[in-house]
Write a protein that binds this DNA or RNA. Structure first.
Lengths: 220, 220
DNA sequence: CGTCACCTAATTGTTGACAATGCGCCGACA
DNA sequence: TGTCGGCGCATTGTCAACAATTAGGTGACG
Protein backbone atom coordinates (compact mmCIF):
# COMPACT_ATOMS: atom_id res chain seq x y z
CA UNK A 1 0.00 0.00 0.00
CA UNK A 2 2.24 2.70 -1.19
CA UNK A 3 1.19 5.92 -2.69
CA UNK A 4 3.42 8.84 -2.79
CA UNK A 5 1.48 11.70 -4.09
CA UNK A 6 1.72 15.35 -3.74
CA UNK A 7 -1.25 17.39 -4.64
CA UNK A 8 0.50 20.51 -3.69
CA UNK A 9 0.12 23.95 -4.99
CA UNK A 10 1.99 25.19 -8.01
CA UNK A 11 0.43 23.34 -10.87
CA UNK A 12 0.70 26.17 -13.26
CA UNK A 13 1.72 25.20 -16.71
CA UNK A 14 0.70 21.68 -17.61
CA UNK A 15 -2.61 20.16 -16.67
CA UNK A 16 -2.58 16.53 -15.83
CA UNK A 17 -5.25 14.95 -17.95
CA UNK A 18 -6.69 11.92 -16.26
CA UNK A 19 -8.85 10.23 -18.81
CA UNK A 20 -10.63 8.22 -16.17
CA UNK A 21 -13.71 10.32 -15.75
CA UNK A 22 -13.48 13.58 -13.95
CA UNK A 23 -10.58 15.89 -14.42
CA UNK A 24 -9.69 15.79 -10.78
CA UNK A 25 -10.72 12.88 -8.69
CA UNK A 26 -11.53 13.58 -5.06
CA UNK A 27 -8.84 12.32 -2.74
CA UNK A 28 -11.28 10.19 -0.81
CA UNK A 29 -12.03 8.06 -3.87
CA UNK A 30 -8.37 7.32 -4.24
CA UNK A 31 -8.22 6.24 -0.62
CA UNK A 32 -11.36 4.14 -0.91
CA UNK A 33 -9.91 2.31 -3.89
CA UNK A 34 -6.58 1.72 -2.21
CA UNK A 35 -8.06 0.48 1.04
CA UNK A 36 -10.72 -1.62 -0.66
CA UNK A 37 -8.12 -3.30 -2.80
CA UNK A 38 -5.91 -3.93 0.21
CA UNK A 39 -8.84 -5.55 1.98
CA UNK A 40 -10.19 -7.70 -0.84
CA UNK A 41 -6.73 -8.97 -1.72
CA UNK A 42 -6.01 -9.89 1.87
CA UNK A 43 -3.29 -7.35 2.54
CA UNK A 44 -5.49 -6.15 5.37
CA UNK A 45 -6.98 -8.90 7.48
CA UNK A 46 -10.14 -8.92 9.58
CA UNK A 47 -9.86 -7.15 12.92
CA UNK A 48 -6.95 -5.11 11.66
CA UNK A 49 -7.41 -1.66 13.07
CA UNK A 50 -7.43 1.36 10.77
CA UNK A 51 -6.31 4.49 12.57
CA UNK A 52 -7.23 7.68 10.79
CA UNK A 53 -4.03 9.55 11.48
CA UNK A 54 -1.85 6.59 10.49
CA UNK A 55 -3.67 6.32 7.18
CA UNK A 56 -3.44 10.06 6.66
CA UNK A 57 0.32 9.92 7.18
CA UNK A 58 0.64 6.91 4.90
CA UNK A 59 -1.17 8.61 2.05
CA UNK A 60 0.29 12.01 2.90
CA UNK A 61 -3.03 13.74 3.18
CA UNK A 62 -5.15 15.08 6.01
CA UNK A 63 -7.68 13.15 8.02
CA UNK A 64 -10.72 14.61 6.32
CA UNK A 65 -10.69 12.53 3.14
CA UNK A 66 -9.57 9.51 5.16
CA UNK A 67 -12.63 9.75 7.35
CA UNK A 68 -14.92 10.01 4.37
CA UNK A 69 -13.25 7.00 2.81
CA UNK A 70 -13.74 4.96 5.97
CA UNK A 71 -17.41 5.92 6.07
CA UNK A 72 -17.83 4.62 2.55
CA UNK A 73 -15.99 1.37 3.25
CA UNK A 74 -18.27 0.94 6.22
CA UNK A 75 -21.25 1.11 3.89
CA UNK A 76 -19.58 -1.50 1.71
CA UNK A 77 -19.38 -3.83 4.68
CA UNK A 78 -15.61 -4.02 4.59
CA UNK A 79 -14.91 -2.22 7.86
CA UNK A 80 -16.78 -1.48 11.03
CA UNK A 81 -16.60 1.74 12.99
CA UNK A 82 -17.57 2.29 16.59
CA UNK A 83 -17.92 5.88 17.77
CA UNK A 84 -14.84 7.11 19.57
CA UNK A 85 -13.33 3.64 19.38
CA UNK A 86 -12.16 3.41 15.85
CA UNK A 87 -12.43 1.37 12.70
CA UNK A 88 -11.41 -2.21 11.99
CA UNK A 89 -11.58 -4.56 9.03
CA UNK A 90 -14.77 -6.59 9.21
CA UNK A 91 -15.15 -10.33 8.70
CA UNK A 92 -18.02 -12.09 6.97
CA UNK A 93 -19.37 -15.55 7.63
CA UNK A 94 -19.90 -18.25 5.06
CA UNK A 95 -23.54 -18.34 6.15
CA UNK A 96 -24.13 -14.73 5.18
CA UNK A 97 -22.18 -15.12 1.97
CA UNK A 98 -24.11 -18.14 0.76
CA UNK A 99 -27.56 -17.22 2.08
CA UNK A 100 -27.60 -13.52 1.41
CA UNK A 101 -24.73 -12.00 -0.53
CA UNK A 102 -24.54 -14.56 -3.34
CA UNK A 103 -28.30 -14.63 -3.97
CA UNK A 104 -28.33 -10.85 -4.06
CA UNK A 105 -25.48 -10.81 -6.52
CA UNK A 106 -27.41 -13.21 -8.75
CA UNK A 107 -30.40 -10.88 -8.74
CA UNK A 108 -28.27 -7.87 -9.56
CA UNK A 109 -26.29 -9.45 -12.35
CA UNK A 110 -29.26 -11.23 -13.87
CA UNK A 111 -31.12 -7.95 -14.17
CA UNK A 112 -28.12 -6.12 -15.57
CA UNK A 113 -26.91 -8.80 -17.95
CA UNK A 114 -30.40 -9.30 -19.39
CA UNK A 115 -30.80 -5.62 -20.13
CA UNK A 116 -27.42 -5.58 -21.83
CA UNK A 117 -27.93 -8.72 -23.86
CA UNK A 118 -27.63 -8.02 -27.56
CA UNK A 119 -26.84 -4.37 -26.98
CA UNK A 120 -23.07 -4.57 -26.61
CA UNK A 121 -21.03 -2.39 -28.90
CA UNK A 122 -17.98 -3.91 -30.55
CA UNK A 123 -15.70 -1.93 -28.26
CA UNK A 124 -17.43 -3.45 -25.23
CA UNK A 125 -17.14 -6.97 -26.60
CA UNK A 126 -13.47 -6.37 -27.24
CA UNK A 127 -12.93 -5.15 -23.70
CA UNK A 128 -14.72 -8.16 -22.24
CA UNK A 129 -12.75 -10.51 -24.46
CA UNK A 130 -9.58 -8.83 -23.22
CA UNK A 131 -10.57 -9.58 -19.67
CA UNK A 132 -11.06 -13.22 -20.53
CA UNK A 133 -7.74 -13.44 -22.31
CA UNK A 134 -5.99 -11.88 -19.35
CA UNK A 135 -7.45 -14.53 -17.07
CA UNK A 136 -5.58 -17.30 -18.87
CA UNK A 137 -2.15 -15.85 -18.23
CA UNK A 138 -2.35 -14.18 -14.83
CA UNK A 139 -1.59 -15.14 -11.28
CA UNK A 140 -4.56 -15.59 -8.91
CA UNK A 141 -4.75 -11.93 -8.04
CA UNK A 142 -4.73 -10.87 -11.66
CA UNK A 143 -7.38 -13.45 -12.48
CA UNK A 144 -9.58 -11.97 -9.76
CA UNK A 145 -8.88 -8.47 -11.06
CA UNK A 146 -9.91 -9.43 -14.58
CA UNK A 147 -12.99 -11.24 -13.22
CA UNK A 148 -14.02 -8.11 -11.37
CA UNK A 149 -13.43 -5.88 -14.35
CA UNK A 150 -15.47 -8.17 -16.59
CA UNK A 151 -18.51 -8.01 -14.36
CA UNK A 152 -18.15 -4.33 -13.58
CA UNK A 153 -17.99 -3.51 -17.26
CA UNK A 154 -21.29 -5.24 -17.89
CA UNK A 155 -22.90 -3.73 -14.82
CA UNK A 156 -21.94 -0.26 -15.99
CA UNK A 157 -23.35 -0.82 -19.44
CA UNK A 158 -26.76 -1.67 -18.01
CA UNK A 159 -27.40 1.98 -17.12
CA UNK A 160 -29.28 1.08 -13.98
CA UNK A 161 -27.95 3.40 -11.28
CA UNK A 162 -29.24 1.57 -8.22
CA UNK A 163 -28.40 -1.85 -9.57
CA UNK A 164 -24.83 -0.72 -10.16
CA UNK A 165 -24.59 1.07 -6.84
CA UNK A 166 -25.80 -1.91 -4.84
CA UNK A 167 -23.56 -4.23 -6.81
CA UNK A 168 -20.59 -2.09 -5.86
CA UNK A 169 -21.37 -2.65 -2.20
CA UNK A 170 -21.90 -6.38 -2.66
CA UNK A 171 -19.10 -7.62 -4.85
CA UNK A 172 -16.18 -6.56 -2.62
CA UNK A 173 -17.54 -8.75 0.16
CA UNK A 174 -17.61 -11.73 -2.16
CA UNK A 175 -14.07 -11.23 -3.29
CA UNK A 176 -12.82 -10.64 0.25
CA UNK A 177 -14.48 -13.84 1.40
CA UNK A 178 -12.94 -16.00 -1.30
CA UNK A 179 -9.54 -14.42 -0.83
CA UNK A 180 -9.62 -15.12 2.88
CA UNK A 181 -10.60 -18.72 2.36
CA UNK A 182 -8.00 -19.40 -0.28
CA UNK A 183 -10.56 -20.25 -2.93
CA UNK A 184 -8.73 -18.67 -5.79
CA UNK A 185 -10.54 -19.72 -8.90
CA UNK A 186 -8.77 -21.84 -11.45
CA UNK A 187 -7.62 -19.57 -14.23
CA UNK A 188 -8.68 -21.81 -17.09
CA UNK A 189 -12.08 -22.53 -15.63
CA UNK A 190 -12.67 -18.83 -14.92
CA UNK A 191 -11.81 -17.96 -18.48
CA UNK A 192 -14.12 -20.65 -19.83
CA UNK A 193 -17.03 -19.58 -17.70
CA UNK A 194 -16.65 -15.97 -18.67
CA UNK A 195 -16.41 -16.96 -22.29
CA UNK A 196 -19.77 -18.67 -21.89
CA UNK A 197 -21.13 -15.52 -20.31
CA UNK A 198 -19.85 -13.36 -23.12
CA UNK A 199 -21.26 -15.73 -25.72
CA UNK A 200 -24.65 -15.69 -24.03
CA UNK A 201 -24.49 -11.92 -23.82
CA UNK A 202 -23.94 -11.69 -27.56
CA UNK A 203 -26.72 -14.20 -28.20
CA UNK A 204 -30.46 -13.79 -27.95
CA UNK A 205 -31.57 -16.46 -25.49
CA UNK A 206 -32.46 -14.86 -22.16
CA UNK A 207 -32.99 -18.16 -20.36
CA UNK A 208 -29.59 -19.42 -21.40
CA UNK A 209 -28.07 -16.20 -20.09
CA UNK A 210 -29.97 -16.57 -16.82
CA UNK A 211 -28.75 -20.11 -16.31
CA UNK A 212 -25.19 -19.24 -17.21
CA UNK A 213 -25.12 -16.39 -14.69
CA UNK A 214 -26.62 -18.48 -11.93
CA UNK A 215 -24.21 -21.35 -12.41
CA UNK A 216 -21.26 -19.02 -12.65
CA UNK A 217 -22.00 -17.08 -9.48
CA UNK A 218 -23.56 -19.74 -7.27
CA UNK A 219 -20.40 -21.67 -6.63
CA UNK A 220 -21.02 -22.28 -2.98
CA UNK B 1 0.66 -3.60 13.79
CA UNK B 2 -1.41 -2.53 16.67
CA UNK B 3 -1.99 -3.81 20.11
CA UNK B 4 -3.83 -7.05 19.74
CA UNK B 5 -7.41 -6.25 20.22
CA UNK B 6 -9.92 -9.01 20.09
CA UNK B 7 -13.33 -8.19 18.88
CA UNK B 8 -16.32 -10.34 18.68
CA UNK B 9 -17.22 -12.92 21.23
CA UNK B 10 -14.59 -12.81 23.86
CA UNK B 11 -14.91 -12.65 27.57
CA UNK B 12 -18.32 -11.24 28.24
CA UNK B 13 -17.29 -10.25 31.70
CA UNK B 14 -18.00 -6.61 32.18
CA UNK B 15 -19.71 -5.64 29.01
CA UNK B 16 -21.27 -2.27 29.24
CA UNK B 17 -24.58 -2.63 27.55
CA UNK B 18 -24.97 0.16 25.10
CA UNK B 19 -28.52 -0.40 24.08
CA UNK B 20 -28.68 2.43 21.63
CA UNK B 21 -25.13 2.61 20.41
CA UNK B 22 -23.42 5.23 22.45
CA UNK B 23 -24.04 7.91 24.96
CA UNK B 24 -22.85 10.55 22.58
CA UNK B 25 -23.95 10.05 19.05
CA UNK B 26 -21.79 11.44 16.29
CA UNK B 27 -23.32 14.48 14.70
CA UNK B 28 -23.25 12.92 11.25
CA UNK B 29 -25.62 10.15 12.32
CA UNK B 30 -28.11 12.73 13.46
CA UNK B 31 -27.87 14.45 10.09
CA UNK B 32 -28.16 11.18 8.20
CA UNK B 33 -31.32 10.32 10.09
CA UNK B 34 -32.85 13.74 9.55
CA UNK B 35 -32.08 13.87 5.86
CA UNK B 36 -33.05 10.27 5.23
CA UNK B 37 -36.38 10.81 6.92
CA UNK B 38 -36.97 14.00 4.95
CA UNK B 39 -36.30 12.10 1.75
CA UNK B 40 -38.32 8.94 2.43
CA UNK B 41 -41.31 10.97 3.62
CA UNK B 42 -41.21 13.15 0.53
CA UNK B 43 -40.24 16.40 2.22
CA UNK B 44 -37.27 16.39 -0.11
CA UNK B 45 -38.10 15.53 -3.70
CA UNK B 46 -35.91 14.03 -6.41
CA UNK B 47 -33.48 16.45 -8.05
CA UNK B 48 -33.67 18.73 -5.03
CA UNK B 49 -30.17 20.04 -4.53
CA UNK B 50 -28.46 19.64 -1.16
CA UNK B 51 -25.87 22.35 -0.61
CA UNK B 52 -23.41 21.54 2.13
CA UNK B 53 -23.21 25.00 3.60
CA UNK B 54 -26.97 25.48 3.59
CA UNK B 55 -27.43 22.19 5.44
CA UNK B 56 -24.68 23.14 7.86
CA UNK B 57 -26.41 26.42 8.64
CA UNK B 58 -29.78 24.69 8.98
CA UNK B 59 -28.49 22.18 11.51
CA UNK B 60 -26.14 24.72 13.06
CA UNK B 61 -23.03 22.65 12.64
CA UNK B 62 -19.99 22.76 10.42
CA UNK B 63 -19.67 21.23 6.98
CA UNK B 64 -17.57 18.26 8.06
CA UNK B 65 -20.33 16.10 9.53
CA UNK B 66 -22.66 17.23 6.75
CA UNK B 67 -20.27 15.94 4.13
CA UNK B 68 -19.94 12.60 5.87
CA UNK B 69 -23.71 12.35 6.10
CA UNK B 70 -24.07 13.02 2.39
CA UNK B 71 -21.49 10.35 1.61
CA UNK B 72 -23.53 7.84 3.58
CA UNK B 73 -26.81 8.82 1.95
CA UNK B 74 -25.09 8.38 -1.38
CA UNK B 75 -24.28 4.79 -0.42
CA UNK B 76 -27.93 4.32 0.51
CA UNK B 77 -28.94 5.38 -2.97
CA UNK B 78 -30.94 8.36 -1.76
CA UNK B 79 -28.73 11.08 -3.17
CA UNK B 80 -26.17 11.40 -5.92
CA UNK B 81 -23.00 13.46 -5.75
CA UNK B 82 -20.89 14.67 -8.62
CA UNK B 83 -17.41 16.00 -7.80
CA UNK B 84 -17.32 19.78 -7.60
CA UNK B 85 -20.92 19.96 -8.74
CA UNK B 86 -22.86 19.01 -5.69
CA UNK B 87 -25.42 16.59 -4.34
CA UNK B 88 -29.04 16.07 -5.29
CA UNK B 89 -31.85 13.77 -4.22
CA UNK B 90 -31.91 10.71 -6.46
CA UNK B 91 -34.93 9.14 -8.09
CA UNK B 92 -35.56 5.42 -8.59
CA UNK B 93 -37.51 3.75 -11.34
CA UNK B 94 -40.29 1.26 -10.88
CA UNK B 95 -38.26 -1.16 -12.99
CA UNK B 96 -35.36 -1.16 -10.55
CA UNK B 97 -37.67 -1.33 -7.57
CA UNK B 98 -39.58 -4.34 -8.80
CA UNK B 99 -36.77 -6.21 -10.53
CA UNK B 100 -33.95 -5.60 -8.09
CA UNK B 101 -34.74 -3.86 -4.83
CA UNK B 102 -37.83 -5.83 -3.86
CA UNK B 103 -36.30 -9.24 -4.64
CA UNK B 104 -33.24 -8.29 -2.63
CA UNK B 105 -35.39 -7.23 0.27
CA UNK B 106 -37.14 -10.60 0.17
CA UNK B 107 -33.82 -12.40 0.37
CA UNK B 108 -32.65 -10.28 3.28
CA UNK B 109 -35.81 -10.54 5.31
CA UNK B 110 -36.34 -14.22 4.61
CA UNK B 111 -32.88 -14.99 5.93
CA UNK B 112 -33.28 -12.79 8.98
CA UNK B 113 -36.83 -13.77 9.87
CA UNK B 114 -36.04 -17.47 9.59
CA UNK B 115 -33.10 -17.18 11.94
CA UNK B 116 -35.24 -15.31 14.43
CA UNK B 117 -38.25 -17.62 14.24
CA UNK B 118 -39.04 -19.09 17.63
CA UNK B 119 -36.24 -17.16 19.32
CA UNK B 120 -38.08 -13.98 20.16
CA UNK B 121 -38.06 -12.92 23.77
CA UNK B 122 -41.31 -11.70 25.30
CA UNK B 123 -40.04 -8.13 25.24
CA UNK B 124 -39.43 -8.38 21.52
CA UNK B 125 -42.88 -9.80 20.88
CA UNK B 126 -44.39 -6.98 22.89
CA UNK B 127 -42.46 -4.39 20.92
CA UNK B 128 -43.57 -5.89 17.62
CA UNK B 129 -47.16 -6.08 18.82
CA UNK B 130 -46.91 -2.42 19.75
CA UNK B 131 -45.86 -1.58 16.21
CA UNK B 132 -48.89 -3.40 14.87
CA UNK B 133 -51.24 -1.68 17.27
CA UNK B 134 -49.83 1.70 16.30
CA UNK B 135 -50.53 0.95 12.66
CA UNK B 136 -54.26 0.81 13.28
CA UNK B 137 -54.52 4.32 14.65
CA UNK B 138 -51.98 6.38 12.77
CA UNK B 139 -51.93 8.54 9.69
CA UNK B 140 -50.08 7.22 6.63
CA UNK B 141 -46.74 8.52 7.75
CA UNK B 142 -47.07 6.95 11.17
CA UNK B 143 -48.16 3.69 9.60
CA UNK B 144 -45.02 3.70 7.50
CA UNK B 145 -42.94 4.54 10.57
CA UNK B 146 -44.39 1.62 12.50
CA UNK B 147 -43.92 -0.65 9.48
CA UNK B 148 -40.28 0.31 9.29
CA UNK B 149 -39.74 -0.16 13.01
CA UNK B 150 -41.35 -3.60 12.92
CA UNK B 151 -39.04 -4.87 10.22
CA UNK B 152 -35.97 -3.17 11.63
CA UNK B 153 -36.58 -4.73 15.01
CA UNK B 154 -36.62 -8.21 13.51
CA UNK B 155 -33.60 -7.51 11.33
CA UNK B 156 -31.62 -6.39 14.37
CA UNK B 157 -32.54 -9.48 16.35
CA UNK B 158 -31.14 -11.74 13.65
CA UNK B 159 -27.57 -10.83 14.62
CA UNK B 160 -26.35 -10.96 11.05
CA UNK B 161 -24.22 -7.87 10.56
CA UNK B 162 -24.09 -7.82 6.78
CA UNK B 163 -27.70 -8.76 6.34
CA UNK B 164 -28.69 -5.87 8.58
CA UNK B 165 -26.26 -3.47 6.96
CA UNK B 166 -27.43 -4.23 3.44
CA UNK B 167 -31.05 -4.05 4.55
CA UNK B 168 -30.44 -0.57 5.88
CA UNK B 169 -29.30 0.53 2.43
CA UNK B 170 -32.23 -1.15 0.68
CA UNK B 171 -35.30 -0.33 2.71
CA UNK B 172 -35.12 3.47 2.46
CA UNK B 173 -35.32 3.22 -1.33
CA UNK B 174 -38.47 1.15 -1.05
CA UNK B 175 -40.14 3.58 1.27
CA UNK B 176 -39.09 6.58 -0.79
CA UNK B 177 -40.50 4.97 -3.91
CA UNK B 178 -43.90 4.24 -2.38
CA UNK B 179 -44.09 7.67 -0.81
CA UNK B 180 -43.38 9.33 -4.13
CA UNK B 181 -46.03 7.29 -5.91
CA UNK B 182 -48.71 7.88 -3.32
CA UNK B 183 -49.04 4.21 -2.49
CA UNK B 184 -49.56 4.64 1.21
CA UNK B 185 -50.59 1.29 2.52
CA UNK B 186 -54.00 0.83 4.01
CA UNK B 187 -53.64 0.93 7.78
CA UNK B 188 -55.89 -2.02 8.53
CA UNK B 189 -54.33 -4.21 5.87
CA UNK B 190 -50.84 -3.32 7.00
CA UNK B 191 -51.70 -4.23 10.55
CA UNK B 192 -53.23 -7.53 9.48
CA UNK B 193 -50.25 -8.50 7.37
CA UNK B 194 -47.82 -7.71 10.13
CA UNK B 195 -49.95 -9.66 12.57
CA UNK B 196 -49.59 -12.64 10.26
CA UNK B 197 -45.84 -12.07 10.17
CA UNK B 198 -45.65 -11.92 13.95
CA UNK B 199 -47.74 -15.05 14.31
CA UNK B 200 -45.56 -16.91 11.86
CA UNK B 201 -42.48 -15.65 13.70
CA UNK B 202 -43.79 -17.09 16.95
CA UNK B 203 -44.72 -20.35 15.25
CA UNK B 204 -42.51 -23.18 14.03
CA UNK B 205 -43.35 -23.51 10.35
CA UNK B 206 -40.50 -22.08 8.24
CA UNK B 207 -42.34 -22.47 4.95
CA UNK B 208 -45.34 -20.57 6.23
CA UNK B 209 -43.02 -17.80 7.37
CA UNK B 210 -41.31 -17.76 3.96
CA UNK B 211 -44.62 -17.46 2.12
CA UNK B 212 -45.90 -14.77 4.47
CA UNK B 213 -42.80 -12.65 3.96
CA UNK B 214 -42.87 -13.02 0.22
CA UNK B 215 -46.51 -12.09 -0.08
CA UNK B 216 -46.09 -9.19 2.28
CA UNK B 217 -43.14 -7.63 0.53
CA UNK B 218 -43.81 -8.47 -3.10
CA UNK B 219 -46.70 -6.09 -3.56
CA UNK B 220 -45.68 -4.89 -7.00
C1' DC C 1 -6.39 -7.66 48.59
C1' DG C 2 -9.86 -5.58 45.99
C1' DT C 3 -12.00 -1.47 44.21
C1' DC C 4 -12.83 2.94 43.10
C1' DA C 5 -11.82 7.64 41.65
C1' DC C 6 -8.79 10.07 39.05
C1' DC C 7 -5.29 11.04 35.71
C1' DT C 8 -3.10 10.44 31.31
C1' DA C 9 -2.44 8.92 26.58
C1' DA C 10 -4.40 7.71 22.27
C1' DT C 11 -7.90 8.37 19.07
C1' DT C 12 -11.94 10.10 17.15
C1' DG C 13 -15.26 14.18 16.50
C1' DT C 14 -15.78 18.98 15.10
C1' DT C 15 -14.62 23.37 13.53
C1' DG C 16 -13.28 27.41 10.63
C1' DA C 17 -10.24 28.91 7.15
C1' DC C 18 -8.21 28.35 2.75
C1' DA C 19 -7.64 26.24 -1.99
C1' DA C 20 -9.48 24.41 -6.23
C1' DT C 21 -13.00 23.62 -9.49
C1' DG C 22 -16.84 24.19 -12.64
C1' DC C 23 -20.32 27.13 -14.57
C1' DG C 24 -22.39 31.12 -16.30
C1' DC C 25 -21.77 35.85 -17.69
C1' DC C 26 -20.00 39.29 -20.63
C1' DG C 27 -17.53 41.65 -23.79
C1' DA C 28 -14.12 41.46 -27.85
C1' DC C 29 -13.85 40.35 -32.36
C1' DA C 30 -14.57 38.50 -36.93
C1' DT D 1 -24.78 38.02 -35.13
C1' DG D 2 -22.43 34.21 -33.38
C1' DT D 3 -18.77 32.34 -30.81
C1' DC D 4 -14.71 32.34 -28.31
C1' DG D 5 -11.93 33.24 -24.33
C1' DG D 6 -11.34 35.32 -19.92
C1' DC D 7 -13.47 36.77 -15.33
C1' DG D 8 -16.09 36.13 -11.15
C1' DC D 9 -19.18 33.62 -8.22
C1' DA D 10 -21.12 29.70 -5.98
C1' DT D 11 -19.84 25.47 -4.28
C1' DT D 12 -17.08 21.65 -3.21
C1' DG D 13 -12.39 19.76 -1.71
C1' DT D 14 -8.68 19.91 1.68
C1' DC D 15 -6.18 21.16 5.63
C1' DA D 16 -4.56 21.93 10.39
C1' DA D 17 -5.95 23.05 14.96
C1' DC D 18 -8.90 22.24 18.79
C1' DA D 19 -12.46 19.67 21.61
C1' DA D 20 -14.48 15.44 23.37
C1' DT D 21 -14.42 10.75 24.52
C1' DT D 22 -12.70 6.23 25.61
C1' DA D 23 -9.48 2.93 27.60
C1' DG D 24 -6.09 1.81 30.67
C1' DG D 25 -2.99 2.63 34.35
C1' DT D 26 -2.04 4.22 39.18
C1' DG D 27 -2.38 5.09 43.72
C1' DA D 28 -5.25 6.00 47.89
C1' DC D 29 -8.36 3.80 50.84
C1' DG D 30 -11.45 0.51 52.91
Amino acid sequence: MTSGRSRGSSASSSRKLTLSSSLTRPLREEIVDELRYAIVTGDLEPNQRLVEEDLARTFEISRGPVREALRQLEQEGLVESTPHRGTAVLDISEAEISEVVIPIRIILETSAFLSVQGRLRPADVAKLQDCIDNMRVGDPREVADADMLFHRTVMERARKPHTLQIWQTISPRVRAFFTRHGQSADAAQSADEHQQLLDALCGTDPDLLRRTIREHIAVL
